Simulated assay, not measured.
Amino acid sequence: MDEEKKAKRLKELSDLEYRVTQEDATEPPFKNRYYKNSEPGIYVDIVSHKPLFSSLDQYDAGCGWPSFTKPIESNEITEAFDERFGMRRTEVRSKTADSHLGHVFTDGPKDQGGLRYCINSAAMRFIPFQDLEKAGYGEYQKLFKRT
């Protein structure tokens, strides 16, 4: 991502969005904007605007944060071992902007691969299905078409 563009976008973030994406913070559970979202659409990185997750892969894991079984574009997600706070976890970051997103765990639905991407709402922006084309994400409308 172009450094000038990234710097401009970072200035547009709220304090919480900045702390989560740039300082690896975690937002409070159960009190974040997408935890209970059930609207169809996609989630994009709040810094790079690259697609990350689809509401079709979102489920209520009971953990207090939006949870997904898989990313839309696996090449936009990077993983790293994380031992902060005395825990052994796998951190999830966006590749393009290097934004901290959350963590991935192996306690997800077994019939959907067994992964749980536990992601901070503050690291994402939700694009509702009806706005995908207008927002420049029209190619993702096909995810929601029934065959």
Rank of each mutant, 00 (worst) to 15 (best):
D15T: 13
N120C: 08
S38W: 02
K6I: 09
Y43H: 11
K8G: 01
L16I: 06
K142E: 13
H49R: 15
K110A: 12
R9W: 02
E79I: 02
G113Q: 08
A25K: 03
G64T: 08
L143E: 01
S99T: 07
Y137F: 13
Q58W: 09
Y34W: 08
E27A: 06
T78P: 00
F105A: 01
D2C: 08
N37R: 10
E133D: 14
T96K: 15
R88M: 06
G62I: 06
E17W: 13
Q112C: 03
K11P: 01
P29V: 03
P71V: 00
K36H: 10
D60S: 02
K110V: 12
A80T: 14
E23S: 11
P128D: 04
K70Q: 08
K31A: 15
Q141D: 06
K145G: 00
F53R: 11
K11N: 08
H49Q: 15
M1R: 13
D98W: 10
I127L: 05
R116K: 04
R93M: 11
I72S: 03
C118R: 06
T69K: 14
K142Y: 08
R88V: 06
P51A: 11
K6F: 03
Y137H: 03
E73P: 00
N37H: 05
D24T: 12
Q130H: 15
F129W: 14
K110E: 14
T106M: 11
K145A: 07
E76V: 00
P109E: 12
R19H: 11
M1I: 01
L132A: 13
T78L: 10
S55K: 07
K95N: 06
E76R: 09
G64A: 11
T21D: 00
K134P: 00
E73G: 01
G64W: 06
